Amino acid sequence: MNENLKSADSRATYQQLINSGAFKPFFQPIVSLEDQRVVGFELLARRILPEGLIVSPAEFIPVMEQYGLLNELMTSLASQGFMTARTWPEHQFLSINVSPSQLNGKHLPDIIRKLGERYQFSLSRLRIEITETALIDDVETARAEIEALSEMGCMIAMDDFGTGCSSLAWLIQLPASTLKIDGSFIRSMLHKKDSRKIISSVVGLGRSLDMDVIAEGVETEEEAEMLRGIGCPYAQGYLFGRPIPAEETRNLLTAGSGSHIHRRVARMSLEQRAHQISSMYAAPDTSICFLSPELIVVDASDTFAARVGWPMQDITHRHIFEVIPSQAEKLLWLQDFRIKGLPYPPFEVKLPGGTIDLIMITQVEDEAKELLGFCIFGFNLDCKTRSVQP
């Protein structure tokens, strides 16, 4: 009984903290790696103590979840966030995080809809960030919640993408528009080849699905330069700006922060690009094949030849249907996407050894948009190769 009373008192205390405005939104900029424009902000919760100290969400979010107060906390923070974002240019978005426990089929879409109406904030400027675990626990309920939010105009972002080992097939079924690459891959990308391969595959996946890709946790110019060379369009992290209070966001936007970084994040040289392509050809878990417009194999990596079980010297000048007859029906199905002018969706192929490859196909065109052929890119989805130690 005493424990129940103690718990009730603690819940009431946190409820009072929410009502009194002790929790404030801070905003971290998300920038375009192409020109360093701030394209939006991620809202991050902070607790401000009376003496002015700032408490990290890692200390209070688990307690809020335990007491069932996450919706109340999000309502307070989103209200403040909507009022702040209304002062930004209309093309910039606000991104907020949603806990898996909030995708329970009860209140979230209704809360977001009412807040948008109350503060006259267009939900087309709102990006909802969810993690893979939110889908793994209860896929059907989470899908219904996400679809409801999307139908209201919200953009959906998959946060911490690449850290799980679940199938990627559900990405095609959900209305997600953004992939956020987990910061653990960014921190290790300069010295871990596996991290670079995973980042490249996620960027390629996003491009194939016409999705935005944001790299989280970018802290150095070297990381930004490598991400730009890989083709990642957006990033956030301390290199571009730490989380700031609401009143400072307008100053950041008017100052055009980030232009000094743009001069230092240079394009990759031809030598660097050649080295990157050579490295991809040599990677043991990455396979590449180039096809002519008539689907004849022009060139392929040793890994691709080994994957399909052909001697390297015999694979060129063969029709792709002859090389991988088991995928002929799938490749014919993909032709419909080309006819309609749509990007080719990725698909998974189970290999004889039991591992799974994610296959992505892109068109290769010249400057006049004349079709030169196709590139088939395969990435091993075996969980052992995807795990990255921090």
Results as ranks from 00 to 15, higher is better:
M1T: 13
L5H: 12
K6S: 11
S7M: 07
Q16P: 02
S20E: 14
P25R: 14
P29G: 05
V31A: 02
L33T: 05
E34C: 03
Q36N: 08
E42G: 02
R46A: 13
E51C: 07
I54E: 01
M64L: 11
L70Y: 06
L70Q: 00
S76D: 10
A78W: 01
P89R: 10
H91W: 04
I96A: 01
S101E: 13
K106P: 07
H107I: 15
I112S: 05
R113H: 15
G116S: 06
Y119F: 15
F121S: 05
F121D: 05
L123W: 12
T131A: 13
D138C: 12
V139K: 14
A142C: 10
C154D: 06
I156A: 02
G162S: 09
G164W: 01
G164H: 04
S167K: 04
G183K: 14
F185E: 04
R187I: 04
M189W: 10
V202M: 09
G204C: 05
R207I: 06
R207S: 11
L209H: 00
D210T: 02
M226G: 05
C232Q: 05
Y234A: 09
E248C: 07
T249M: 09
L253T: 13
T254H: 09
I261E: 01
A266H: 02
R267W: 03
S269E: 05
Q272V: 12
A274C: 12
S287C: 13
C289A: 08
I296S: 00
D299G: 00
D302A: 14
T303E: 00
T303M: 01
A305H: 00
A306G: 12
G309K: 07
P311M: 04
I315K: 02
F321L: 03
S326A: 04
A328H: 09
K330A: 09
W333Q: 15
K340M: 10
P343M: 04
V349F: 01
M360R: 13
I361F: 08
A368K: 14
C383F: 11
C383P: 15
K384T: 14
